Amino acid sequence: MTTSIPKVRRVGVVGWGAIGRVVGSALVEQTIPGAELECVVDNRPLGDSAPAPQVAFEEALQRCDLVVEAAGQAVVRAWGERVLESGTDLLIASTGALTDEELAKRLLAAGPGRVYFTGGAVGGLDLLQAVRSLGPLHDVRLTTTKLPSTLEQPWMDEELLTRMRTATGPVEVMSGTARDVPAKFPKSTNVAASVALAVGDLDTVRVRVVADPGAHHTRHVVEASGAHGTYRFDVAHLPDPGNPATSQVVPYAVLRSLAALAGRTGQIL
């Protein structure tokens, strides 16, 4: 009887920021059995700060069988299809990119690589997916509350920026659907896209983005209802100290997804 040797996933991390550093360092420390850090891709020279070779994107596709995107929606748009066409799997952290339905269709149709996404800073997505199989959810609402400075965008007019900067309490910055909001806040509202992907309808998910100078935690409240029940998830995370636009928990959600893809057993998927 022969015993097969488990395949080790050779992982490339794209983006050496708040998410990528935690993910890459954990791989180097071998905290994810069956996965190892092969290389890092970043548009800045990293020198000795990266614990693996820094390479160009095309070289990463030759060296890796799994790429972790930790650099923003623009990378998914620019490189997602190319990754999958090379036969490399892709784990997406910036799920907001998938609110572009044409892009999402192209990624799902591309191959032979496979595309995955992580839920990031919100819970309950697996339950929403299960409920969706029973019938549509008719009312889904997400309220995201963050520090004003993390929500400032180039498209904002001076009146809105002044209200945010001088606020002494919560200020609604934008409301819309999960189709609209992630495009306006490409680094701050990936949760809206994750909820919409779980629900299966971008337009069903209504999103409010709130700036609050007292928001010591980033908060996401999901409320959903349908013929089969009502559901509410309320999560509050500490922002990452180096990048307050993202929650500290996000890279650990990526690592959990990586562990599942690497074949670790004995966990709830």
Results as ranks from 00 to 15, higher is better:
Val13Arg: 07
Val14Gly: 04
Gly15Cys: 05
Trp16Val: 08
Ala18Gln: 09
Arg21Trp: 01
Ser25Met: 14
Leu27Met: 09
Val28Asp: 00
Val28His: 04
Glu29Asp: 12
Ile32Gln: 11
Ala35Cys: 06
Glu36Asn: 08
Leu37Asp: 02
Leu37Arg: 03
Asp42Thr: 11
Asn43Trp: 12
Pro51Trp: 06
Pro51Asn: 09
Pro53Glu: 11
Gln54Asp: 06
Gln54Gly: 07
Phe57Cys: 03
Glu59Tyr: 11
Ala60Asn: 11
Leu61Glu: 13
Leu61Thr: 11
Val68Thr: 10
Glu69Thr: 10
Ala70Asn: 06
Ala71Pro: 07
Val75Leu: 11
Gly80Val: 03
Glu85Ala: 12
Ser86Thr: 08
Leu91Ala: 04
Leu91Glu: 07
Ala97Tyr: 00
Leu98Gly: 00
Ala104Leu: 13
Arg106Pro: 10
Ala109His: 04
Pro112Tyr: 04
Val115Lys: 06
Thr118Leu: 06
Gly120Arg: 11
Leu125Asp: 05
Leu128Asp: 00
Leu134Arg: 13
His138Ser: 15
Asp139Lys: 14
Arg141Met: 03
Leu142Gly: 06
Thr143Arg: 15
Pro148Ala: 08
Ser149His: 13
Leu151Pro: 10
Gln153Leu: 03
Gln153Arg: 12
Glu158Ala: 15
Glu159Ile: 13
Thr162Trp: 13
Arg163Cys: 05
Val171Glu: 12
Val173Asn: 10
Val173Tyr: 07
Thr177His: 01
Asp180Phe: 08
Lys187Gln: 13
Val195Lys: 01
Ala196Glu: 00
Ala198Thr: 05
Asp201Phe: 00
Leu202Pro: 00
Asp203His: 09
Val207Thr: 01
Ala211Cys: 07
Ala211Pro: 06
Pro213Ile: 04
Arg219Leu: 02
His220Tyr: 14
Ser225Thr: 14
Thr230Lys: 13
Arg232Trp: 08
Phe233Cys: 13
Phe233Val: 15
Phe233Asn: 08
Phe233Ala: 13
Asp234Arg: 09
Val235Asn: 08
Leu238Lys: 11
Pro244Phe: 07
Pro251Gly: 05
Pro251Cys: 10
Arg256Lys: 14
Ser257Ala: 15
Ser257Trp: 01
Ala259Arg: 06
Leu261Ile: 12
Leu261Tyr: 07
Ala262Lys: 02
Arg264Trp: 09
Gly266Met: 09
Gln267Val: 14
Gln267Gly: 14
Ile268Arg: 13
Leu269Lys: 05
